[in-house]
Every structure is written in C-alpha cells, then in structure tokens.
C-alpha cells in the first residue's frame, strides 16, 4: 500500500520566508544581527563580509538593517544563522509602506482634479494625500509591530556553504 501519513506535519502553520544573517554583537540575552545581502547580485556572503565603509555602500546599508533577536540558542559573534519571517509579512509590510500612501495620494489627486481641474491644486492635494497616507502607514506599522508580525525568528544555525540563494 502507499506511503505513510506524516502525523507530525502541521499544515495550518504559516510558511516562513528564510534568510541568512550574521551575528555582529551579543548583549546579555539579546543578539544583534545583520542580514546578508541576497538580492540580484547573488554574492551574498561576500557582500556581507565587505570591509569597506561609507555612505551608500552595501556594508553601510546592511548595518542600517541591523535587528535584534532573543539569544536563547547561545549564539556567538560571527555565527551565521537562518532566520525566518511569516510569508505574508512581506506582502503586509509592502501594502502598509507603499499601497496606503499611494492610494491616498491618487484618491486626493483624482478628487481635486474633478473638483478644481487645476494642475497646481491637484499637486497640492496629492501632497496632502501623501502626508495623510504616510501617517496611516505609520499607525498600521505600529499595530503590525505590536502583533509581532514584522519581527524575524531564529530557525537554525546556517550550515557550511549555505547561502541565501541555495
């Protein structure tokens, strides 16, 4: 007869998007990590180890994305770990950061254009809509943070040779 049924798999659990980060500091029970750059360049581990400093370098951008994790696993400086966030978190974060301000910007602009019909009035209305949208985004981001939906979670230590593209 067919294969065994896996009773341990929880199909209702949210799937995780994984990424690799490096521990840069340990303070008491908390560890500071920076993510490895895993975008289009493909050279994630070498980019993260880049020693050049300065505004706009990959190194400075990775430093700006420093985050904290509770150090239950006894992580040490220099260790590479795999962290995960809820798969829907990127979508929710993108909607919060970009879609809400765009929606208010375009809504205000269309309203101003239909009422006043002037480019200057439409421009001013769009700026006001953008400011309103950014305020709404800030409120929603605060709620997502309070629910812990934006925080990455420690999954496991990265194995030798494991990269964010593998």
């Amino acid at each position: 007869m067919g294969g065994t049924v896996d009773n341990m798999t929880d199909f209702s659990a949210p799937t995780m998007t994984e990424g690799i980060a490096q521990v840069v500091a340990v303070e008491g029970n908390m560890a500071w990590l920076i993510p490895e750059s895993g975008s289009s360049c493909g050279g994630c581990s070498s980019a993260a180890a880049c020693g050049s400093k300065g505004i706009g370098t990959i190194s400075s951008r990775l430093e700006a994305r420093r985050f904290q994790l509770v150090n239950d696993a006894g992580l040490r400086i220099g260790e590479r770990v795999v962290v995960g966030i809820n798969e829907n978190a990127v979508l929710r974060a993108s909607v919060t950061a970009y879609v809400i301000p765009l929606a208010t910007l375009l809504g205000a602009g269309m309203l101003a254009q239909s009422v006043a019909g002037s480019d200057m009035v439409t421009m001013a209305a769009m700026l006001a809509g953008l400011v309103l949208g950014l305020w709404l985004a800030r409120v929603r981001a605060g709620r997502l943070m309070a629910k812990g939906e934006l925080a990455p979670r420690f999954l496991r230590r990265a194995s030798m040779g494991e990269t964010c593209n593998s």
């Binding site: 750059s37 975008s39 966030i85 800030r138 934006l150 925080a151």
Partner: peptide, 15 residues
C-alpha cells in the same frame, strides 16, 4: 515612518 518596515523592505530601494 517605521524602522522595522525599512529593515524588511529597504533592500529593494537602491535597485
């Protein structure tokens, strides 16, 4: 607006 959002999404902007 939100530093955690920047940590998650900021990598795309320079591209």
């Amino acid at each position: 607006v939100s530093p955690p959002l920047f940590q998650m999404l900021g990598i795309y902007l320079p591209l």
